[in-house]
Simulated assay, not measured.
Amino acid sequence: MLTTPITAALVRGALDLEYTERGVLPHRLPARARQQIPDGQLAMTESQPSGVRLAFRTAATIVELDVIATKRVYAGFPARPDGVHELLVDGKLAGQASVTEGDTFTIDMATGTVESKPGPVRTLRFTDLPGDDKDVEIWLPHDETTLLVALRTDAAVHSAQSGGRKTWLHHGSSISHGSNAATPTGTWPATAAALAGVDLINLGFGGSALLDPFTARAMRDTAADLISVKIGINLVNSDGMRLRMFGPAVHGFLDTIREGHPTTPLLVVSPILCPIHEHTPGPCEFDPDGLREGKIRFRATGDPAETRAGKLTLTTIRGELARIVKERSTTDPNLSYLDGLELYGEADHADLPLPDDLHPDAATHRLMGERFARLAFDSEGAWATHEARPGV
Rank of each mutant, 00 (worst) to 15 (best):
Ser238Asp: 05
Glu64Phe: 02
Ile62Thr: 13
Tyr344Leu: 06
Gly252Ala: 15
Ala150Phe: 07
Tyr337Pro: 02
Ile276Lys: 06
Thr100Gln: 08
Asp16Lys: 14
Asp90Leu: 02
His177Met: 01
Leu343Cys: 05
Ala8Arg: 15
Trp188Cys: 02
Leu10Ile: 09
Arg242Thr: 05
Thr153Gly: 04
Ala388Trp: 14
Tyr74Thr: 12
Pro30Asn: 13
Ala216Tyr: 08
Leu42Glu: 06
Leu151Trp: 09
Ile227Val: 05
His279Pro: 06
Leu211Asn: 03
Arg125Lys: 11
Glu387Met: 12
Gly345Glu: 09
Glu64Tyr: 07
Asp351Glu: 12
Glu86Arg: 15
Pro353Lys: 14
Ile62Ser: 15
Gly186Met: 05
Gly206Val: 06
Cys274Ser: 11
Pro120Lys: 12
Asp143Pro: 01
Gly204His: 09
Gln96Ser: 09
Arg318Gln: 02
Thr364Gly: 12
Thr191Lys: 04
Arg308Asn: 06
Gly294Thr: 08
Phe77Glu: 00
Val269Asn: 03
Ser116Thr: 07
Thr385Val: 08
Asp289Trp: 13
Thr187His: 12
Val268Phe: 08
Leu151Thr: 02
Ala8Val: 13
Thr45Ser: 14
His177Leu: 00
Ser179Glu: 14
Gly112Glu: 04
Arg371His: 06
Leu2Cys: 07
Thr191Gly: 01
Thr127Phe: 08
Ile37Gly: 05
Glu342Gln: 11
His85Cys: 14
Asp378Thr: 00
Met219Pro: 04
Arg389Trp: 08
Thr315Glu: 11
Glu293Gly: 02
Leu124Val: 00
Arg217Leu: 09
Arg299Ser: 01
His170Gln: 09
Ala309Ser: 08
Leu210His: 13
Gly345Lys: 14
Gly260Ala: 07
Phe126Ile: 00
Gly206Ala: 15
Trp168Thr: 01
Glu46Ile: 03
Ala209Tyr: 13
Gly345Leu: 07
